[in-house]
Nucleic acid binder design. Structure first.
Lengths: 204, 204
DNA sequence: GCAAATTAATGATTTATTCAAG
DNA sequence: CTTGAATAAATCATTAATTTGC
């Protein structure tokens, strides 16, 4: 261990602690001068270069996202399984889905699954049940505010606030009976690799 | 100003991730009760209303289609071009760049872009670590290109935001005097205010 | 206990996307 | 439409944990 130079940076515990604290405080993608300063400061605790700091933030951020995604997708899948169960129970014999309810089998479908059981209509009035999007539009048109993003909406724009995520609410919602379609990975993917939602495909 | 509530919904990263996961899993046009439930669940992660969910799905679906259309037409266009310039393409495809034109840059160089500033040398000058990659030797010594200007700060990510970073505690635990990083709030001038409810930005 | 063998983490690179100048 | 800047995603590679057989 002593004389053999490691081929890669091995952060000391102090360095790591400080980096993590910075990350927690919101730093995600430090710019050049920030990296420079961080490096200078951390070098007090051991050998370190700018690129180490750069890579550390890149990796930490990415893996944070990955972890979160995995969590989310696990939850979703769990919901789906529960829904599937329900589906089998409830839809075995007759009436599948309300005919003409959805524009295309797919879009409607499975989704209804989430959150069904509507005892509460959050729409002020309007017979929303039909759930035609148009209907909703009306009820809201008062102050429709387009979503942010404008073209920026790319897949992952969320950089900051990486606070711990508790999935509580979602799991709550899956305790209720839902109408559902089967929703499972069609391709063999699923296995290799954590979710990586990008490659997963569902059919409904 | 930070205290002024944004006029429009700013999804948190958790909310976005969950919405995207739902979208990926097939949800396209949730009905009223679904929206209501989604909203209820997402509200755990931040302020959100039913209309936000509704619009999000509308927009996301639309942009998805748009993207797909563009892609398809691009593809078609490309095919046609290939037909026209078949041989030409064949010959060029492999080496887009003159071989050996740049040994260092490559994609990796991209990132190196930063650090630099002659005064602080972070490059493995001493052959530290024996050059894990030849590219590094070249790239790291180059002068940098400042990363995204802080004023421009771009599309994604509210990068450094959030809570105040306390360096004190850390230095205490490390037994050594820590030269603290200067981390202070930067004035609101450059706040692009990507939502990020906690719109404070710190720089060091 | 203690190394060899396995597996999990994580540093470092490469490849793909995205956005927006030009 | 092309291209450059910036970064996220995917991947490679090495180190640290851990398991396992003795």
């Amino acid at each position: 261990m002593s004389s053999v130079a490691s081929s890669r940076w091995c952060p000391t515990s102090e360095q790591l602690m400080i980096l993590e604290e910075m990350y927690r405080s919101g730093i995600r993608t430090p710019n050049a001068s920030q990296i420079q300063k961080i490096t200078a400061n951390l070098s007090f605790y051991g050998k370190i270069e700018g690129k180490n700091v750069f890579y550390w933030f890149q990796n930490h951020k990415a893996r944070d996202r990955q972890k979160l995604r995995r969590k989310v997708s696990r939850q979703l899948q769990l919901q789906q399984q529960q829904q599937l169960h329900y589906y089998y129970q409830m839809n075995q014999s007759n009436d599948r889905f309300p005919a003409g309810y959805y524009e295309s089998p797919s879009s409607s479908a499975l989704q209804q699954l989430f959150f069904f059981d509507s005892s509460v209509s959050f729409l002020p009035q309007g017979g929303v049940t039909g759930a035609s999007t148009q209907a909703m539009n009306h009820t809201w048109k008062v102050d429709m505010i387009p979503q942010r993003a404008e073209s920026t909406m790319t897949t992952y724009g969320y950089d900051g606030n990486a606070t711990v995520l508790e999935m509580g609410p979602i799991s709550n919602c899956c305790t209720r009976p839902l109408q559902t379609l089967e929703l499972f990975p069609v391709t063999a993917t699923n296995l290799k690799e954590e979710c990586s939602a990008t490659s997963k495909q569902y059919c409904l």
